[in-house]
Design a binder for these strands. Structure first.
Lengths: 231, 231
DNA sequence: TGATCATATTAGGTTAGACTAATGTCTCTT
DNA sequence: AAGAGACATTAGTCTAACCTAATATGATCA
């Protein structure tokens, strides 16, 4: 008989593992036991145990001693969780006064409890947005996600005109600092200079006409695409 | 040393048990094992086991073979869950287009996942409301709940002028029927007649000037208070 | 009063998901 | 090619919650 089309309602833990594996195997590689354990702050043997269950459930492919990858079923489930998370983050910031630096943990708990129906209502109330408050793309309800070619500010060419697209951290202190500096998704910058030996990058904020000096560590969190011509 | 003021974060199950016990022991009586099991659709021995844990945690008082009652700590936790549930129900109906007959199960899942902060933000966005969509009073953030003297429509005196206050069911079909009939919280009615031998009650809807005949079973779900003079 | 029956509790088992300690495997360097 | 060190897995334990089957309690009625 064919596989049931009815999704069997996964546990919270399973949902968290799938999301973690999605993030870690993003570039087509394997997610290792150690990295999953690190991301979820679990002991490695707990992960080995769950990996066995997930692969019996057909959600992941496990190559012993090498790592795991999501199956298409697992990927679908992971993208669903990511959609939920990002829609929630945007809804909480737009409609309930959350800031981009404190919205993560609330969404992290709610994403396991909301229904698909509620998420679609929130998405509709937001006008079916494509990006969350950190600039990350929101997967569609059908599980498609935008793949973009991004450069980190720390590696962008001198002279480039960039638009800041994603901020690659959930750390509240760093997010607050970025916000203070005006480094938020959507902002246009010009790369004017970079000091040698992995030194800081200097950028010019096109809107305010002010400069910012961004160290390498933070610059690697700021993902940009080449700015369009015009405004 | 004094008891910690830090609430130790209860599990979902514990939260559900406390809510159930609150409902069942509302009038100061004991909640029995059997009734708790019925309400949560669990086997009786599961309840016995949890009762032991809850009373070790100091959340309930257990009299063997008689039943349980909430301690003040347990009552506080139960009221917190009821506040969450009712604020969520109202928020979902007012801001996300839910109807009063489908909002219950969504709130039932979310109430375990939201933070206090989020509930207070929702309550503020609603203007710190006192009643949920079914007319049930919303406990305050400090754990006080309004106690009102209510009569069911099925038992109200002939000739009484009433305001419908609470609808005592979560059953979607009954709720839809009530809504169709215009029998929703806030509505003013006059009791014009009741047929003998537990027969139906006839009421007059003051606003629309139409009559409704309400059978005993449904009438017992419609809780009213005496209407004020004036409009 | 005592038998009966509803209800409560205890006994013992299951599952998911975590843990530590012990053991296997792979890779990298010498 | 061998051994060290990093990483993964297996073995065995624990806890929260559930379950069924067996037993105890207490209320009711002949």
């Amino acid at each position: 008989m064919p596989a049931s089309t009815q999704e069997p309602s996964l546990t919270r833990s399973v949902e968290d593992y799938l999301k973690a594996i999605f993030q870690l195997s993003h570039q087509g590689g394997f997610a290792t036991t150690r990295d999953i354990a690190g991301l979820l702050t679990l002991a490695a043997p707990s992960v080995s145990g769950m990996v066995k269950r997930l692969s019996e459930m057909g959600l992941i492919e496990h190559v012993p001693y090498r790592g795991v990858q999501l199956t298409s079923q697992g990927r679908r489930a992971a993208l669903k969780m990511i959609r939920r998370h990002r829609v929630l983050e945007l809804y909480l910031t737009r409609h309930l006064g959350y800031d981009w630096d404190n919205v993560h943990s609330e969404a992290e708990r709610l994403e396991h409890a909301v229904s698909d129906d509620l998420i679609e209502r929130m998405a509709a109330a937001l006008g079916n947005p494509r990006y969350d408050p950190h600039g990350d793309p929101i997967p569609s309800a059908t599980g498609d996600i935008e793949e973009t070619e991004l450069v980190s500010l720390a590696d962008a060419a001198i002279g480039a005109e960039l638009e800041l697209q994603q901020v690659g951290t959930q750390d509240a202190a760093r997010l607050r600092y970025f916000a203070e500096q005006g480094l938020v998704p959507g902002v246009r910058v010009s790369v004017t200079d970079r000091q040698p030996f992995n030194g800081p990058t200097t950028v010019y904020l096109n809107a305010s006409g002010t400069a910012r000096i961004v160290g390498r560590e933070l610059g690697q969190l700021l993902w940009c695409h080449l700015a369009d011509e015009g405004s």
